[in-house]
Each structure stands twice: as structure tokens, then as C-alpha cells.
Design a protein around this nucleic acid. Structure first.
Lengths: 405, 405
DNA sequence: TCACTTTAGTTCTGTTTATGACTTATGGTA
DNA sequence: TACCATAAGTCATAAACAGAACTAAAGTGA
């Protein structure tokens, strides 16, 4: 595991043994209210009171604070009904921003996200095996350019989230330069000290993508899901009741390592067959040398047949693990995201779903695969959510003595 | 799903949108403190303040309340150190009790548990396909007898927990009487109204067993685990960060339904091969007619060989799903409980672990199987914990507007 | 037109609960 | 025996929400 990832695995039962006090309770209520506004769109104070279970005066106080802080705005009155028309409240899209950075072996990308969930600025560099200095320079340059446009105030930035694969500096891939292992020894918090002084939060890419889907994607309607991230490798993330579950050693969702044992030939791991690099290898073996995912959309007849073969094979390999997920975890759905083009994801999802239906036997409930609302940008967007989560949104925040304190 | 099980699946994000108030916060702190005493054994107020993050006066107030309520007792002073000797506090084993009832197709059992986790009374009836009236009569008779001894005061009972298989009235098994389907239409809360008027809480048996293991078994040291319950059928339960995860439709842990597709022959489900009834069938086919699990401990050579064959086969079938659990969920361990005799569980655990080690390939971390601390009684004990959880122990209790309110 | 109704939202007071400073208690240590 | 360290209680204070009363503003209908 990367040294920066999940720095604090909670001690046994300790996590649930924290008391709370009035300040914490108030903070929690403010976070809950903000989240209710974020999720419920423009919403009146009376509705907020109903949803949160708080009383009208409490909501009045909390919304007053949120208005003063500029996190929400008044968004028109609700006319046409009896009684005093209610003032609707909505997230202030310029109220606060967060920076998300995704580092992967074949690209680095940066987004600026607002609290309403809109990507307000984006920058990507397609570069293989970028080293820390290059990434830091990229982040500094792009962020300066974004801030220079003036639409985003530096003071409104609440933090920097970084999403990167667990094994970035660990696994040595064939074409990987030797010094790439430096990532394993890099402290990301100091690496980005050249930026405006922001809190830096780190998460693995699949987890970040899952978090993004939970907060701003289909997860809003499906609080428990497995997120399947098909990028350079194959990763996954588990969101249960709206909460990301990291696993005992921070390795939940490592679906890519699942062993596949074919009837003949040696065993291999699932991501050797189902991943962007596996797909590129498959296509190359058929004589189609692709350089980027979008090349998959402009294939000739033969290329399309090769792609269809890969999809059928991938669906066959995925259906078993997906059945396991359905039975063991029973999430509402499995969302598929990553860097595959949308139509290819759709085909893979359909093929896997029908494979599962054919194989399911007595399985009582199948969690259907669906294309995720966030795909290519998902890890970066998810990374950007981390600071929001820590500062503004409800979580385990009612508890005292967090790792940071 | 049984109608009584998980009556309130939380609406999407709503679960996390509840505000809190002072009373709730205070209640939460009291629950947290009680749990800290329960888990931490005899413990001083100063240590409680350290663990919970509350201040000494707050702990003083809370412990005073707990002492008045009789839930904790003073347990000797801590001498031999500088300063005033601290008073150690411990759970009052006679402070409160809970009744747990396990209903299964081949037996019904009842336990009375105290808050310290001790089974204070126990009753079992080995009866096939007991009907509701019979179970109610059993519970009434046994509970009266227990209360008649006088060691347990009726006033100190906080509730009745019931654990039963999800599909008790649903699935129709070969030897099952037709009227057994009445379970599906039975309201358990009214069924047990003949008892002292206790809150009745219902949970499926695997979930209850997992909960029991989490609160009073190995789960205290391993907050995230999968519990594998081998009883008449095969079930499972998922505990993550000390919290039982029920699944989107309340069907997490349904490992028994996982399809097995052998190289030759038709597909079947895992519990057709790995379960007490499957084992009995296997032994019967070899000429060994067993009537109860303990018969497995007194087999002759041939019987032992037949048992070993079954264990090898079961280990081979379990290793795949167990690898999936390791990769996808990454729990600290998998605990195996149920009605198999301990030595048989040990053999099965060892066989499965070595099978997994052989097959794991690149899997970064394996969750080892271990024999659960609670086995045969686990569902009943877990059921008895439900009322404790609702009334006394911390959970999602900081939130307002629970399903009950 | 105008009083009435209805709903939104604020103000004020009261309650609960934890905190902080201070005090008391009690046994070890020099 | 004087001193010190630690435990734990007391009291006043602050923070936060609840409840009741009040004001505001729009629709309703005679």
C-alpha cells in the first residue's frame, strides 16, 4: 500500500468509542443541512426541517450561518401556495471549490470542482510514467492558469485531493522506467507544497472514483454499490450505505488481483484480461495498434469483431466475481467506470448482465451492472470530493478525536 | 425475505441526513461509555475519559447515571500508584439481561444473556419443523422456568431477540410439512405476546451469529469480518468496522446460493454441497446415517475417511468464494461457526486455508479463515444482543428519527 | 375590498449537556 | 510528617437545540 494511503486504520473497536459534545453536534447538524441542500436541490427551510428532523429555529440558525459563509444562496421564493411564500435555498456554486488530481501511469489530470458537483476547470496531460516533479509542475502550472482566469478565487479553495493507484511505485511493469519507483518514497503532502497552502488528502484511484459516484453520480439514488474501475489496470471500490469502505488493510475492491484459472494453461489475474492495457494487447495481437481509448470508436469491421471478442471474453470472466458480489455483499448495483469509451462500457455491461442472468442459478437477487455516471474523470472528481467530505459534509464527523485532531 | 426482517430499508441518502440534538448526544455518550466499560473490562474513569475523548466531569456524570441504573458496578480500587487510587468500573453482570431465541428447521433454542456477555441460562429442543405455536410454548415455558429460579429478575429483561433463517417459510424442502409455510405469514411480535411484555427484535440467523461474534467473540479484536454459518443450510454475515451490513435488500452474506458449475454435470448451489444437511447426505451415501452433528466425533475409520473426503471437497468449493471475499471486501478474517463440531470446523478451516494459499496467485492479502468463538449458540446469542444494541450500546444512535420513532 | 386562513420564518426563553476552573480526597514519596 | 501526584467531584459558564409566541406575507372568499 502506498505510504500516504489510509494513514490511520482505526484501532479495533476504538472507532466507535468516541464521545461527542455540543460543538460537534452543531457541526454535524450544519454538515447534514448542507448535504440536504446539496442533494435536495433548491429546498425550503421547512423541508429541511422535515428531512433533518431538526426544528425550524435550528434550521434558521444553521442556514443563517451557511448564508454568511457563502456556502448557500437564496434561490427564489416558492409562490402559488397558501401562506407566506417559502424562500428556496441552494448551494452557492461559487461558494467553495476543491482541486482533484489523478495520477496514473499513462496520464495525469486535474479538475477544479465546485460544491454543486460541477467540474469548473479541467486539465489533462497524456504522459507515460510521469515523475513526481513533473506532476507537481503540472499541478502548479495548470492551477495557476485556472486561478488567473479569475472565475475561481484562491481563497475559496478548501483543499487538494489526490487519487492514484495503490501500487504506483510498487509494481514494476515491463515498460516502466526504473526511477518510477520513487513514487513509493514520495510524500505527497510536501510534493504539493508549491501550490497555495491547501490541505492535501490522498486516496487510491478506484476508491476516489467510487466516492465521486457516491456523491455526485448514481450513488445518490443507490447508497450501496460496487464501483468497477477499468483503467490502465482493474480496480474497484465499495460504497455501503453511502460510506466508502476501505477494508481492513485498505485493500477492498482489489478485484483486479482475483485469480482466473482457465481449463488449460496457467492461472492469471483478472486484470491481465480485463483492463485497458489488456484490451490494447488483445487488439494489438489482432493487428490493431491503438494509442488511446477513443481509437476503439473508429475501428473497421475486423477491429469491431476483435473488440466484440474481447467483450465476450471479459463478460465471461467478470460474471463470476459479479455473482459473488451480488450474493456476498448484496449492493444495489455495480457501476462501471474508467477510461473505456461509453459505448464500449455499455456493450460490456450488457454482455456481462446477460452472462450473469444465464449463470445465476438460485441466486435470489442480482445486482445489475450499469455504466457509471462519471467515467474518465471519476478518479479526479472523487479526489476533489475528499476535502469537501472532510470540511463540509457529514460522515463520521459527530465523533470526536478524528485522526487529524 | 421474511416479512419481519429488516422492516425499514433506509431511503437512499436519507439515512445520513438526520440531525442530532443534545439529548441524543448525551445518550450517545452514555452508550459509548458503557461500551467502553464492556469492552475494556474493569476500567477507571480517567481511562474512560482518555478513550472516549470526554472530560473527567462528563465521565463522572455519565458513570453516576450508569451506577444508579445498576448497569455498572464499582470493582475495586487501583492501588500501588501515585495519587489517589482510581476506582475501577465494570459491567454489572446482574444489571440487565436479554433473551435470545433461535428458530431453525431442526431445533429451537433459547438463551438468556447478560450485558457482560455470559450466557446465564440456556434451553434447546431438538425438534424438526417446529410450528409457531410450539415455539411460543417452548419460549414461554423455558423462560418461566428460568425466571422461577430467581437469579434473573424479570424487570431486568430488556428485550427478546429472534434469529431465524431468511427463508424459513419460503423454501419448501423435501421432508418439510406443508403447514410449515405458516412461518412466512406469522407476525413474530404478536406470537411472543404471551411472554413478559418485551420489545421483540428479529434478525436472520447468520446476521445474528455475526453480530454475536462481533460483540462478544473474535470480532472485538477484528472489527471487519465475514461470518460463515454452517448449519442446516449455509449462510453468512458481513460485519464492517464493527457494524453489521445488511445489504441493499437485506440479503448480504447469502453465500449459500452461489452457483457451482462443475466440469461435468449440472450446476448446483454452494449450500447443496457445504452445509450440515449436505454433509449428512454425503455420509449417508457412504453408509453412515447420522442424526446429530456430534455423531461426527465418533466415526470409525471408514467414516472418518468419508468425512475427510467431504472436507476436501468443501474446502475446494469454498476457496474461490473466500478469495473473492478477500479481494473484494478485504476483511480481517473469515470466522466459521454453526453446528459442525469444533474439530470438524478446525479441519475444514485448515483445508480451506491451504487451498486458498495454493490458489491465491497475486492476491495481495488473504483473509484467513478461523473457527468462530461462538459456534452452535451463536445465532441465539446474537439474537439476544439485538435488544442491547437498541437500548444500550452505541450504533447509529446519534442520529435522530430512527425507524422506531 | 378586506378580514381570514395558512404557511414561513424569527425571537425569546428554557432545558440539556459538556467544558473549564477550582476544590477535595487519598494514597505514595522523600 | 510534609509534599506531591492523581482521581474525581462541584459549580458556574457556554453552546446548541426545543417550544411557545410572534411577525410576515401570500392566497381565499364573502
Amino acid at each position: 500500500m502506498h505510504p500516504d494511503l489510509s494513514p490511520s486504520i482505526p484501532a479495533a473497536v476504538g472507532a466507535s468509542l468516541s464521545g461527542t459534545n455540543l460543538e460537534r453536534a452543531g457541526d454535524h447538524n450544519q454538515r447534514v443541512t448542507l448535504q440536504a441542500i446539496r442533494v435536495g436541490g433548491p429546498i425550503t427551510r421547512a423541508e429541511l426541517a422535515e428531512i433533518t428532523g431538526l426544528t425550524a429555529p435550528a434550521i434558521a440558525n444553521i442556514t443563517k450561518r451557511l448564508l454568511v459563509e457563502g456556502l448557500i444562496v437564496e434561490a427564489g421564493r416558492l409562490l402559488g401556495q397558501r401562506g407566506q411564500p417559502a424562500m428556496k435555498l441552494a448551494i452557492n456554486p461559487n461558494g467553495c471549490f476543491s482541486v482533484g488530481l489523478n495520477i496514473d501511469r499513462d496520464h495525469i489530470s486535474l479538475v477544479v470542482l465546485d460544491l454543486a458537483g460541477q467540474v469548473r476547470a479541467r486539465a489533462t496531460r497524456e504522459v507515460d510514467y510521469a515523475l513526481p516533479d513533473e506532476v507537481a509542475e503540472f499541478a502548479r502550472t495548470e492551477l495557476s492558469a485556472i486561478l488567473a482566469t479569475g472565475t475561481i478565487k484562491a481563497k475559496r479553495l478548501v483543499g487538494l485531493g489526490v487519487a492514484l493507484p495503490d501500487d504506483l511505485g510498487k509494481v514494476h511493469l515491463p515498460h516502466q522506467p526504473d526511477d518510477y519507483a520513487i513514487w513509493d518514497r514520495t510524500d505527497l503532502r510536501t510534493l504539493f507544497s508549491g501550490l497555495p497552502p491547501l490541505p492535501v488528502l490522498v486516496e487510491n484511484d478506484a476508491a476516489a472514483a467510487a466516492l465521486g459516484e457516491a456523491q455526485f453520480g448514481l450513488g445518490l439514488r443507490h447508497p450501496s454499490f460496487f464501483y468497477l474501475l477499468i483503467s490502465q489496470g482493474l480496480g474497484g471500490g465499495l460504497v455501503l450505505d453511502g460510506q466508502y469502505f476501505r477494508g481492513a488493510e485498505g485493500r477492498s475492491g482489489e478485484i483486479g488481483f482475483l485469480p482466473v484459472r482457465p481449463a488449460t494453461g496457467p492461472a492469471y489475474s483478472l486484470q491481465d484480461a480485463v483492463s485497458l492495457s489488456a484490451l490494447f494487447n488483445h487488439m494489438a495481437a489482432r493487428g490493431y495498434r491503438l494509442t488511446q481509448p477513443d481509437d476503439l470508436l473508429s475501428l473497421d469491421k475486423g477491429g469491431q469483431a476483435a473488440l466484440a471478442d474481447w467483450i465476450a471474453k471479459a463478460a465471461g470472466l467478470l460474471s463470476g466475481p459479479m455473482l459473488s458480489i451480488s450474493c456476498l455483499i448484496n449492493p444495489q448495483a455495480v457501476f462501471v467506470g474508467g477510461r473505456l469509451p461509453g459505448p464500449v462500457v455499455d456493450d460490456l455491461v450488457a454482455a456481462t448482465n446477460s452472462r450473469m442472468a444465464a449463470e445465476c442459478g438460485q441466486v435470489p437477487i442480482l445486482a445489475p451492472l450499469r455504466r457509471a455516471a462519471m467515467a474518465a474523470d471519476a478518479p479526479a472528481v472523487g479526489a476533489a470530493i475528499l476535502p469537501f467530505n472532510q470540511r463540509l459534509l457529514p460522515g463520521r464527523s459527530v465523533l470526536m478525536k478524528t485522526a487529524e485532531d
